[in-house]
Simulated scan of single mutants.
Amino acid sequence: MIKIAILGLGTVGTGVVKVVEANTVPIQHKLGQPLSVKTALVRKLRADPYQHLMTENFREIEHDGEIRVVVETIGGVEAAYEYTRRCLMAGKHVVTANKQLVAEHGCELLELARKNHVNYLFEASVGGGIPVLHPLTQCMAANRVDEIYGILNGTTNFILTKMVKEGASFAEVLKLAQEKGYAEADPTADVEGIDAGRKICILADLAFGHQVDPAQVPMEGITGIDLKDVEIAGRHGYRIKLLGRCLRLEGGRRTAYVAPHLISEENPMSDVNDVFNAVVVRGNATGEVMFYGKGAGELPTASACVADVIECLQEERHRPEIGWSADTGGFASPLTLKNRWYFRVGTDTLSEALHSAKVLEQGTETAFITPSITGTDAERLAAYLPTLAKMRVLD
């Protein structure tokens, strides 16, 4: 019997227990022996179906020689960081879904894992149950990855989908998302693009081999999107999606950002709706490869965690292809990128600004799409015009 422990018994932690219990036969077939959860660290003991697993004492897990893998589902960076370090130093593999911890401290924790001949795996930190990190580092290893972009947050995608399909306002749909449990009481990390930003940092780290500091990455959410822009986009064959995007630039530089984009209805990404996520990886040999599925939720995320547990136990070696340099140099502002831009402005006297632009609608307000210009030029144009909305167009 192989025994593991869980740090935190919330939604994902409970999901891990459920997946292990529900899939005993296929898991045993892969490992050659049964897998069980021995201990779960909680802040406070409580009445619960899994109360028999609970402990408030981390040292019980840290010093238990039977526990070979620890699944960290606490979230945040304070306790999770300390406990992860101590587990790795104790010679235990660690698996996590904690995108903030990986984005901010992943390089350091991977190096600590290497020194202690164990693994630190985090497939569930990006895309929930969608397998994307493993294919990126192994299945696409023969490629130079030049770009990754995707819908990386289910909450914002649910809100935008409802705005499109039902004509509801952002505030109305946010309230519905909270009622359904898709959005937290404080939804800031989701709706301001912070959650997606952490995920695109992890993807960029792995794709480009250098640390991308989340503090350098511009993160714009969906709070400024007006129903008018959703309607205008729809009438002209576009959908609005919140995308995380990272690109390899000339001279070894790289960039990343999160922002709303207009996407043509001809792009498969435009049909990714509700709480689903999708990630597109563009390699120089494969072209674009798309990964699609449920990007969050108890069981999809837990499934990715347990898959990492199985890999740790099957391999029992450090995976050398998982890691990146701590060097944060070479990061360029995404304002240097060229895109077409969507603008909605509050006047129809725009002859100079509309030169070479594609006018979508004109009246007391005018909506148009510029030719390909840099983000810096878009900022200058926005300062010159009475701008009500602006966002990139994904070409």
Rank of each mutant, 00 (worst) to 15 (best):
I194W: 02
C305T: 12
E379K: 04
I232S: 09
A90P: 03
T96S: 15
P131D: 11
G234W: 06
I61V: 13
G209P: 01
Y342T: 12
S303N: 14
V77Y: 04
H105S: 11
A378E: 05
Q216E: 04
A22G: 08
D395A: 12
L381G: 01
H261P: 01
V345M: 00
A207P: 06
K358L: 08
E379A: 15
Q100W: 02
P320T: 14
A142C: 01
Q362Y: 05
G283S: 03
R46L: 09
I148N: 10
I202G: 07
A142D: 14
A171D: 15
M219N: 01
G167P: 07
Q362H: 13
K38H: 08
E250N: 13
G329P: 02
Y50P: 04
Q28S: 14
G8L: 14
E179R: 06
A353F: 02
G237T: 11
T155F: 03
D195G: 12
L203K: 08
K18N: 02
T366M: 13
A326C: 05
N273F: 03
E321H: 13
G106W: 02
I159G: 10
Y182W: 00
S169C: 00
V20L: 13
T11H: 00
V191Y: 12
G106R: 02
F343R: 03
G193Y: 04
L88W: 03
I232C: 11
K165T: 03
Q178C: 06
K44H: 07
G167K: 00
G283W: 03
S169R: 05
I4D: 06
V95E: 02
E266H: 12
R340S: 15
V95M: 00
L133Q: 05
P214K: 06
N277E: 12
R245W: 08
S351T: 15
S270F: 07
C305M: 13
V25Q: 10
D186Q: 13
R380W: 05
N284E: 13
A304G: 11
E108M: 11
V70D: 10
I310T: 00
D186F: 11
A113T: 03
K162A: 13
E315N: 10
T39D: 12
L101T: 12
L110N: 09
L136C: 08
E311S: 09
G237P: 06
N339F: 14
V164Y: 06
G237K: 07
S356H: 13
K175G: 04
T370A: 06
V345C: 14
T223L: 14
L136H: 12
A90S: 15
K241L: 04
H355T: 02
I373C: 11
A177I: 02
M391D: 08
V230Y: 04
K241F: 09
A80D: 07
T14K: 08
A256M: 08
A189S: 15
A79G: 11
Q362M: 13
T73Y: 00
A168T: 06
L249W: 05
L206D: 01
H318C: 10
A189V: 02
G221M: 07
W324H: 13
L133N: 01
V42K: 09
D48R: 11
G375D: 06
A304C: 10
V77A: 09
V94R: 01
T24K: 14
Y238D: 12
G252E: 06
R198F: 15
